[in-house]
Write a protein that binds this DNA or RNA. Sequence first.
DNA 1: TCTGGGGTCCTAGGACCC
DNA 2: TCTGGGGTCCTAGGACCC
Length: 426
Amino acid sequence: MFALVDCNSFFASCEQLFRPDLIGKAVVVLSNNDGVVVARTKEAKQLGVKMGEPFFQIRQLTQQNRLTVFSSNFTLYSDLSRRVMQTLENFCPVIEIYSIDEAFLDLSGMTINDLTEFGYKISTTVERWTGLPVSVGIAPTKTLAKIANETAKKNETKICNLQDESECIKTLQKFDIGDVWGIGRRLVVSLRRLGLRTAYELSQVDPLWMRKNFSVIQEKTVRELRGEICFEVDIPQTRKSIQVSRSFGDSTSCLADLEEAAASFAIRAAEKARTDGTVASAIYVHVNTSRFKKNKENYYSNGVIVPFPEPTSNTIEIIAAAKKGLRQIFIPNLQYKKATVILLNLLDAKFAASQKTLFDKNESYSQNQKETENRLMSSLDEINHKFGRGSIFFGVEGIQQPTWRPRHNMKSPCYTTNINDLPIAK
DNA sequence: TCTGGGGTCCTAGGACCC
DNA sequence: TCTGGGGTCCTAGGACCC
């Protein structure tokens, strides 16, 4: 059996946690650059606010005081997520943190008398310890646990246990095929065309036929709906790529602006790699203009991969490569709206280093140089960790508030991570 | 005026090998 | 006239997830 624990309207709940005056109100959280809606409370859903809806289309509601809007505050959400996950670890030794707001618990090998009761225990404990509401879905496979969780969200108790087979079938018969985990926007069109409407109907399709006509993933989805485990709880290894990208507050046609943005993203990506203990074999740099301009023919979107001579997490090398790539794809006089940097083919840093000394016999001057630079990077990270991000930074990041800096005009304080932002009880 | 960011996996097809 | 068989690796593109 698996349990899927998922925080309800996670980002919005995080905001309400420190703004109890907003409990029971319509609240949404926006994506970066205050672009689109990424989280909504129940009340906001009832107002008709859609997931992914552009902010400018719902601005009216905020002006009428019917809706409270926040820019995203990932520092806050990450910290609260960590607390939720730590709480869950008390309930089960094998847990897969699947996303910032949900985790699978592998209950196999545990003796639990009453699974529903167990789910209830989880939900009340998380709520008491963190202040955040969660739903719990329990089922024999991960795909079914997902469905159980969706169903739980509509329950009064926020718990749904699909252990019982007839109960499970009843639920599947009411569950839309498009909401099944692994059935996305494209697939649902083909499946509906075949006359399949519900999760139950999908579960009755021949798995081999599914594999032949779609892919092995869809075959597994069908099997999982029947109760056959195909997706185990997996404890993720370090990630294989690191992406940093932002839409710009204001678009720009200036190469210097783009260089500043690309360098900033490269710096952030390099930091993440060092935190993970990985080195990148190549970097991908991408820029694009706005997809939403009337004149579609002028849309420009291009990227290039720049390999490194040897895998690295050195910010200086990574910035240089990012700028090199950028100059290859830059075309003057376009209104750029977004830049992306991705570190590719990440390897374990220690493994990469051992491979190198294995084959590279001339331990040379350049090797010493490398070690010096690595120490420089470590010092940089330590200082910024100790005294806060930005205590020490690269000149290429720019000193003035650049035009490309994303908007986030409605960001809440970092209540739990910044001493100056501590809430005051009156 | 204004439309997000960060990941993973699978498949088909080409290049290449013996 | 007739032109093999079996395999690996890599990549781009497309699908999915939250």
